[in-house]
Amino acid sequence: MVYTLAQLRGFVAVAEHGHFGRAAQSLLTSQPSLSRQVQGLERAVGVSLFERGPRGVQLTVAGHVFLRDARRILSLSEGAPETARRVAAGRAGRIQVAFISAAALSTLEPLLTEISFELAQLEVALVELSGAEQLQALADGRIDLGLVRPPVPTEEFDAQAVHAEPLIVALPVGHHLAEKDGPIAADDLIDEPILEYAEDGTDYLHDLCVRLLGSENFVAAQRVSQLSTALALVRARRGIALVPRSAAAMRFDGVIHREVAGSSPLVTLHACWRRDTMNPALINVIAYLRARLQP
């Protein structure tokens, strides 16, 4: 089955006007030429699309069905060049974004909202992966953008910090520090059993906790890999935890959160991508992120 867009346009015009002569006038062509086009289309499709009469034509049952598809094909063909231009310019297209679970608490929703506002025709596909899994997926070309904790290997990837927040203290209800109003001094945490992290196979959060208290004052309790596990163990009175402020959004019953007095190390989240990316949509997202996050 081979037919042309010109034949489809001729068919749609005849269907809409119900007359070859009027349809030919609207297309600025001759009636015999239009008639040959429609006949060629009917031969290609293999069915009669019109019932012809002395006063005009009417669509057959098959013609009614074919008209719907013909209009859709013409609409797609007319929009395809502009779609290709938008994709080439990075205003449309698709990017695959991976995120760690902590990003869903602090960054993912506002970041996606802003990107959707700036690049409304961009499709963003999401997948949750650990930081190590994201770096491997980026290297393999399976994702375009990752949301990870540092450090980010700079030989292969580029990165932009997209979120920073302080550490706060998670305490079980009834803990003597939970009874205090206001922020808790870091010195008050000395000798307290503190849950330590190996999040995503790195020591990033653990190192921040040690930096806050000093290695000589850090009393390690259970080792965990997820913030949700840390909060569950706090509730079970297996220790206290230093968590990013956004972790309070999990709202664990039996867990109270307190700010840390003074300056606290900031927990950061980075967007990272391959330096050699050729995806125009991703390049636009990167430019937007850098412009948005400039001091």
Rank of each mutant, 00 (worst) to 15 (best):
L205H: 12
G174L: 10
E196D: 14
T202Q: 11
A198I: 08
T202A: 11
A178T: 07
A186F: 00
D203E: 15
G182E: 10
P183L: 01
G182I: 02
I184A: 07
K180L: 11
L195R: 08
L195M: 09
L189H: 07
G182V: 07
D203H: 13
D200T: 13
L177Q: 12
A186K: 12
V173P: 01
A186L: 01
P193R: 03
G174V: 05
I194C: 03
K180P: 00
V173L: 13
E192Q: 15
A198K: 12
H176E: 15
G182K: 07
L189F: 04
Y204D: 06
A185E: 14
E192Y: 03
D187G: 00
D181R: 12
A186H: 06
L177F: 08
P193E: 01
I194H: 01
A178D: 02
L205C: 03
K180C: 00
D200W: 09
I194E: 03
E192C: 02
D200H: 15
G174P: 03
T202E: 11
I184G: 02
L177Y: 11
D188R: 11
L195A: 10
E192D: 02
Y204F: 12
Y204R: 08
H176S: 12
D191L: 06
E179I: 04
I190E: 11
E192K: 07
A186G: 03
T202Y: 02
D187S: 14
E192I: 01
L205R: 09
L189C: 01
L177I: 10
D187N: 00
E196L: 09
D188G: 01
E196Q: 03
I184R: 09
G174M: 05
D187I: 03
E179A: 15
D191I: 00
D187K: 14
L205K: 05
L189Y: 04
K180V: 01
P183T: 01
L189G: 03
A186I: 01
D181E: 13
L189N: 05
A198Q: 15
T202W: 03
D187T: 14
A185H: 14
L177G: 10
Y197C: 01
A178L: 07
L205W: 01
D200V: 04
A198S: 13
T202I: 04
A178S: 14
L189T: 02
H175E: 06
A178C: 07
D200Y: 05
V173A: 15
